[in-house]
Design a protein around this nucleic acid. Structure first.
Lengths: 242, 242
DNA sequence: CGACACCTTGAAGAGGTTCAAGAAATGTGG
DNA sequence: CCACATTTCTTGAACCTCTTCAAGGTGTCG
């Protein structure tokens, strides 16, 4: 959060960023893109385990992930905790902070990471002038809601195997659109994180992986996962129960 | 959705609406309020069971509930369904539609209801001029996200009894801020709806109510609920497990 | 009054949790 | 670079919660 000499205001080149399509609204003029670059007040590097922000911290900015992998988790006053999502390059993080002017969840880097810091007031101001940006911000927020509804569906109606299958399919799909393999991935989170996210105990996560291996659907070497039969994974989600 | 002669463009008096504080951004000048009233392009009356909007329907407006009670539910392609929330007077509904320009869930009136229809393009345009409105829209979206995280926590980490307790506390608390009793409520939804929302089968909902009755915590007469021991309800949420 | 939707209750069973122990990987300090 | 501590993951067995299946009760509305 500090702006030390080694984290100066840099001129970021959104225009040449490979995440441009994920991150910026479509159809902006180059002059508009130039103004948007001003919003990115700085970049921040994080080491594995670092907090990008914490519950209760004052909300000033939202962040676009340039590289690395994050988890967000939400804690209730009485000590319950729930991992609410995993974020990767191009994802935007920190939107929960808008309501109360402080963050209400924790964002933790699961590997060394780099983010663009976008000052929220600045975004607000600029989106009053660039309607494409305004719409983009709304869509990002709305997408988050949609996404959460998907997780609620998973938590509310799926069995362990379908949850894990959905999780793996979702991750590979997102990685695939970022140029990675559609059938192989390295999990950056612990089984505990997965368990929290999917609403199951760590032992159940482990056993469910074991079941998928047994059925010849995936290959697991630690956190390295290879999907051998994607169709079977999809069928697991659909068939199981009703 | 149709603009028949009996549902004309009316001049709505937001300025004198009793929901004003819930619905409008705080600290607007009276001229700004006047302009906001233009956003409310019409009002719509719904009978119990009517859809306010449906999955797949083109997104044009968001709605503020003036009276009545709604549920929103989200269905996956394979036929799973999840009730994602219950909405009452002052709540805003339809925000899920922004991302894809069409609605991705169903909103159904659980009793006769009345809503203000707010044209979304109009809101966008006006919030470019009134920064208080812009911020308000963002906050409403962000609050929705926060809310969903709370439900994820519930679904991911609570037992049946804690889920139901949380549900009842949440409902009464919201009703209380709207001037209703903090200890009595009439459920507008079926046990099935509750079950879907809380991720449990209808039989479990029924049995869990039975348990709460047995413990002397609530009194249940059909859909009429009276909370006899609110502290005990709260303790159920906290104590149960860890 | 009869039909239908909604709700409750019982008994049996499945799926997931808990507790416990050990294996495998990772990190740390000498 | 190895030994040791720690974290992370796996597996087994007993248990418990919730689900499933089945039947019957209650309320509502034409």
């Amino acid at each position: 959060m500090d702006m030390r000499a080694d984290a100066p205001k840099i001129n970021v080149a959104c225009s040449s960023c490979h995440l441009r399509d994920v991150c910026l609204p479509p159809g902006l003029s180059s002059s508009e893109v130039a103004r948007l670059e001003d919003v990115v007040s700085s970049q921040r590097r994080l080491m594995r385990g670092d907090h990008l922000f914490q519950n209760g911290e004052r909300f000033k900015a939202i962040y676009t992930i340039r590289s690395g992998f994050f988890k967000t988790s939400f804690a209730s006053p009485d000590g319950r905790e729930q991992v609410t999502g995993f974020q990767m390059a191009g994802d935007i993080i920190g939107l929960d902070g808008i309501v109360h002017d402080y963050h209400s969840c924790d964002a933790i880097a699961l590997e060394d990471a780099e983010v663009c810091v976008m000052n929220y007031d600045h975004i607000e101001a600029l989106s009053r002038e660039i309607s494409g940006l305004q719409r983009h911000v709304h869509k990002v927020l709305s997408r988050e809601i949609l996404n959460d509804h998907g997780v609620m569906l998973l938590l509310g109606s799926m069995r362990a195997e379908a949850r894990l299958a959905t999780f793996l399919l979702n991750l590979t799909q997102r990685l695939h659109t970022r140029g990675f393999s559609p059938t192989e991935l390295v999990l950056r989170m612990t089984r505990d994180d997965i368990g929290s996210y999917l609403g199951m105990k760590i032992e159940t996560v482990s056993r469910t992986f074991a079941k998928l291996i047994e059925e010849g659907i995936v290959e697991v070497k630690q956190r390295h996962i290879r999907i051998l039969n994607k169709e079977a994974l999809k069928q697991l989600v659909v068939l199981e129960k009703q």
